[in-house]
Computed example of a mutant assay.
Amino acid sequence: MPPPRRKRKAASYEPRRRSPSRLEFRATVDGAWYEARVAVQCGALRVMYEEFLEEQDEWYDPAGLATSSAWDVVKLRARFRVPSTPLEDTQCRDLQAGARLCVSCSLDGGDLKFYDAILDSVYPAAHEIVDGMERCACRFAVQWSDGPRAGSMEEVGIERVCCVQSSPVQDPVLMEFLDGVTKLAGDANVETVSQEIHVAPVVKGGVPANALQTRHRDFNGKFGPASRQAV
């Protein structure tokens, strides 16, 4: 596996008022989940993918979002969540059918990306003790919710499973930006928009004229929302 592609040092636009926190972001190019950080620079929201080059950052222009509709703001907000956590070897007994998971998906060409899935059932197996540590040998039947295998079933091992967290996103920079754009876009029935978000088209990222020019590229899929990788 090639070494991680480190991000080059970002150009200086505006001083950050707060240290950026780590989030999970559903990319527009492939619908997979990636670790990311956010910052507001030149008035625009910059989404910076962890372990990827600056050219793959996404920009969202508040003016463009505000002049479209409140739908786009709600859809963008739904693309962020707190990072999923790897399922620990001692936690398999706690999983219940219907649990929402984020699972690594091995694609053609060796790409590894993370997509959401729903737990169908757990096939228990005796755990082993390796170097004094408990190792789970159970198998997990999941139904893919997103990605190229959406709707299909697959049986996976614990090394591929992460648990989606229900905690709300509390990143102050992101919340301030989205709340401000929501006010600009005007009032809307947010509850109705949220219920229908899964059928809405993807919002495009706007790039401010005086910011670093970027364009979306296909990711090589070697990194996902958790440090655990499939083997």
Results as ranks from 00 to 15, higher is better:
E50G: 00
Q41K: 04
Q41M: 13
D72S: 10
R46C: 07
L76D: 00
L119D: 11
Y49W: 11
E54W: 06
L107H: 02
S69A: 13
E50A: 06
S69H: 15
S106N: 04
R93L: 09
E51R: 13
Y115A: 09
R100W: 01
A97T: 10
A78Y: 14
P62L: 12
I118W: 08
V40K: 04
A63P: 01
V40G: 01
G64I: 13
A78V: 03
K75W: 09
L76I: 02
S68T: 11
Y49P: 00
E54I: 01
D108Y: 08
W59P: 01
L119C: 11
V47E: 01
S68P: 03
Q96M: 10
S69Y: 09
R46Y: 06
A97L: 13
L101F: 10
S106F: 13
D108C: 02
T90L: 07
R93V: 06
E55I: 03
V74H: 00
A99N: 12
A63N: 04
C92F: 14
F114K: 14
F114M: 15
S68H: 09
S68R: 11
D94F: 06
C42E: 15
L119A: 04
R79N: 07
A78M: 12
S106K: 10
L95K: 10
Y60T: 03
P83Y: 09
S106H: 15
P62Y: 12
F80W: 15
Q91S: 08
I118M: 08
W59T: 08
P86Q: 05
D61Y: 11
E88L: 09
V47W: 13
G109H: 09
D108R: 10
G43H: 10
L53K: 09
E55K: 06
V73D: 07
C92H: 15
E88H: 08
A66M: 01
W71T: 08
P62R: 13
S104L: 11
Q56E: 15
S68K: 13
E51H: 10
D89W: 07
C105D: 15
D94R: 11
G110E: 05
T90H: 11
A97K: 14
V73P: 01
S106L: 14
G43A: 13
S121E: 15
W71D: 13
R100P: 01
R100S: 02
E58W: 03
W59R: 10
V74F: 02
E51F: 09
L65I: 04
G110Y: 02
E88Y: 02
D111G: 04
L76P: 00
D57G: 00
V40R: 01
D111V: 10
A70L: 10
E55C: 01
E54M: 06
Q91H: 07
Q56G: 03
R46F: 01
L112K: 11
D61V: 05
Q41F: 03
R46V: 05
D61F: 06
D72Y: 03
L45Y: 02
I118D: 04
Y60S: 08
A70I: 03
Q96H: 14
T85A: 11
S121Y: 06
D116T: 07
A78H: 05
S104W: 15
E51P: 00
A97G: 00
Q96T: 08
G110T: 14
L119Y: 07
K113S: 12
A99F: 03
C102L: 15
S121C: 12
C92Q: 13
F52E: 15
L87W: 10
V103F: 11
P62Q: 05
F80T: 11
L45D: 12
R81P: 00
R81H: 02
V73N: 07
